[in-house]
């Protein structure tokens, strides 16, 4: 160790370090790249790893064979896409039983771990695979068509600007701001929680890419200088104007009608 430390300023050390970095990156890429492309090519060891993670983190609710229990549904046939969506957005594992699993910003699993669990679940029964990046980037897409598809298929729950909205009995459609294209795609194919399924026959992969492009365009959309009030439409705007608009008008009416001291 001392010998290594003593030579850390050697001219060759930088070159060696860069070489090491390149090797690690190259090996890492060759190991990871095929997996993200398609879940069906998962190696046996990855499935084994995924099973271990599943037993440790998921089996309490979903059962030892992912057959489902009273606390959680069966995961047979949900596919790698469902796992990648639920774990990748921090919804699973759920912190506590609730009406609906909320999105959590801090994802407690690395992408490799999520991929391993996805590979394990996908090995149980065929289901939707993790989508190809070609259709989740939102690039080379028709934003206008995406907006139309969004308004027809999604806007009634998720709001025209993707701000989300309420459903029945405490359930809600989450807001869609700043969501990775991959997760948007996966949610459409798998229909998580209350959401219905929009398979690739219903909305084609190109259509889904258009929708992703529209949502990304909404994310980037510049505020022209007004309070958006959550982009919730008439409800929040109406509430605001009834409370503040009418309040100010009443205050002025009182002031106008009062005699000066």
């Amino acid at each position: 160790m001392n010998a290594l430390a003593a030579r850390r300023r050697h001219p060759a050390a930088i070159a060696l370090l860069i070489l090491l970095g390149l090797v690690v990156t190259g090996v890492g890429y060759s190991v990871l790249a095929p997996k993200t492309a398609s879940a069906t090519t998962a190696s046996a060891s990855q499935v084994e790893e995924g099973k271990k993670l599943f037993l440790a983190n998921c089996a309490t609710c979903h059962g030892l064979q992912a057959q489902g229990t009273k606390a959680g549904p069966s995961l047979a046939g949900v596919g790698a896409a469902a796992v990648d969506f639920q774990m990748g957005t921090g919804r699973m594992p759920m912190a506590a039983p609730a009406v609906q699993a909320p999105r959590v910003n801090e994802v407690r699993f690395t992408q490799e771990q999520i991929d391993a669990v996805a590979a394990y679940i996908a090995s149980l029964a065929p289901g939707p695979a993790i989508p190809s990046p070609e259709y989740t980037s939102g690039e080379n897409a028709n934003v206008a068509l995406g907006a139309e598809l969004f308004r027809v298929n999604c806007a009634m729950c998720h709001n025209f600007a993707g701000s989300g909205g309420a459903l029945t009995r405490g359930k809600y459609a989450p807001n869609l701001r700043d969501i990775e294209g991959k997760h948007i795609y996966e949610a459409m194919v798998t229909g998580p929680q209350s959401m219905p399924v929009f398979n690739d026959d219903n909305i084609s992969p190109e259509g889904k890419n258009d929708i992703i492009a529209y949502l990304h365009a909404v994310d980037k959309q510049e505020n022209r200088g007004g309070m958006a009030l959550g982009n919730l439409g008439p409800v929040s705007e109406g509430l605001f104007i009834w409370v503040f608009g009418l309040g100010i008008m009443i205050a002025f009416a009182v002031w106008l009608g009062r005699k000066a001291a």
Binding site: L149, V152, G191, P196, V197, F198, N199, D201, N202, G207
Partner: peptide
């Protein structure tokens, strides 16, 4: 289908679909 106006086959409508 609504915007595209393409016909729908019965086997394309999987369970849970809308």
């Amino acid at each position: 289908r609504d915007p595209e106006l393409t016909p729908i086959k019965a086997d394309q409508v999987t369970i849970g679909s809308v």
